[in-house]
Design a binder for these strands. Structure first.
Lengths: 217, 217
DNA sequence: CGCCCTGTTGACAAAGGTCAACTAGCGTGG
DNA sequence: CCACGCTAGTTGACCTTTGTCAACAGGGCG
């Protein structure tokens, strides 16, 4: 590892108390951190109003690497314990990484892009089967058509059985949201589909999050 | 993107028919591919005997980037359609990427490491709540103790409610697998825990997978 | 010392898994 | 070219698991 570990890095070390929000999903992604001490949990809004915590970060992990390929943070990070982290401004990091277009930077970008796109899906072990299916279709459809993969595969990807998928799809068809035959699924009514994907916790108001969390400065 | 896109790459293009296995989880990771055409599904054995398909790869995605940081493939890849992909041997890629220890390579390694470790967890939207909890504890425990995070956080990470988590934990304690108080969970009996994590589809024999899939050469 | 927050336990309802029968499309072979 | 059989997908009935709602307990902090 070398450069990033060992403490004698050019990155700026900093400590934050337990409970603090380190960065917010959607905010301009200006910094990347290397986590030296403590535990951090990442959460992400999952299409519907709800927010899901989906993974932990521990010492040695990188926080917000997406800053390199995206303009906004992909997750909200919350310290579960007091943390020590080394931060670096995105622009500085950019310089540090060397010329764009170098093989390793190209690869880095590719990997990060893929990672950013797929993680949100990961989150949802929640929501009704119909809702998950609707979200998947919205995510995956290109030109109004979902990928032509066997039903069994779709079911696996969504963590449900083919039978359940079949029923969920039937519901979406009944609602007029999609039109499906044995091997294709096409979007018939985006609004209806969005409704199916979002509906449920529609009552859950945005959780205004009254500061409270941030401990002593 | 430049280097990797556009077709005029140093990578060796190759086509494979629908249904073929492109590489196998656990096999020595010798190549990395750039997917140019087609759809690929990745699956991974999830602790218990079962195997879960967890994500799709489409044109423009990288296949098996873990080859750079791991000796074995992390997933099994299966072509859902005929595919065209550009492969490169790990050693050659290694040379192409330039000196180890350069900032961008260091970062690339970090990101890949994190990615490899966290994806398996993603898979499991399946299994009973007790089983998922057992797997999580096995995954996360360091020195016989699971991370000290609030129950609510653990529940979120596992996609269940605090109530359900509480019941699942009670079962594991009843089985003598763990010992937990209000804020810690420590492993009491690894074997019992492994049994709890694996049990269920114990009848599911290994799916010998009788060729069948591979289409015409 | 008492309140509040987090976690636990209980009873009930609903979503989804299970098992099983049935249908449709496709490929194969006569 | 048609018929047959096979596999993937659909539908139905039932049962387990988990989410829901609610009451309660234990620790920590004021």
């Amino acid at each position: 590892m070398g450069t990033a570990t060992g403490g004698r890095c050019t990155w700026i070390p900093r400590t934050r108390p337990a409970g603090s929000r380190l960065y917010l999903e959607g905010a301009p992604a200006e910094r990347v951190w290397y986590l030296k001490e403590g535990t951090v949990v990442l959460s992400r809004a999952n299409g519907a109003g709800a927010t899901t915590r989906w993974t932990l970060r521990r010492p040695g992990d990188l926080l917000a690497p997406e800053a390199l390929v995206s303009t906004g943070y992909a997750d909200t990070a919350e310290a579960l314990t007091p943390v020590t982290m080394c931060g670096m401004a995105r622009t500085e990091l950019d310089r540090w990484l060397g010329p764009t277009g170098s093989p390793s930077r190209t690869l880095l970008s590719l990997v990060l892009k893929t990672r950013c796109e797929e993680t949100p899906r990961r989150a949802s072990a929640d929501g009704t089967s119909t809702r998950r299916l609707a979200q998947w279709i919205l995510d995956e459809a290109r030109g109004g058509e979902a990928p032509r993969v066997p039903r069994k595969v779709v079911a696996d990807l969504l963590g449900m059985l083919p039978e359940t998928l079949s029923r969920a799809l039937a519901k979406l068809q009944a609602a007029g949201a999609v039109k499906a035959d044995r091997r294709t699924i096409r979007v018939a009514d985006v609004d209806a589909l969005l409704r199916a994907a979002g509906e449920a916790q529609e009552d859950t108001d945005e959780d205004p999050d009254p500061a409270a969390e941030t401990a002593a400065p």
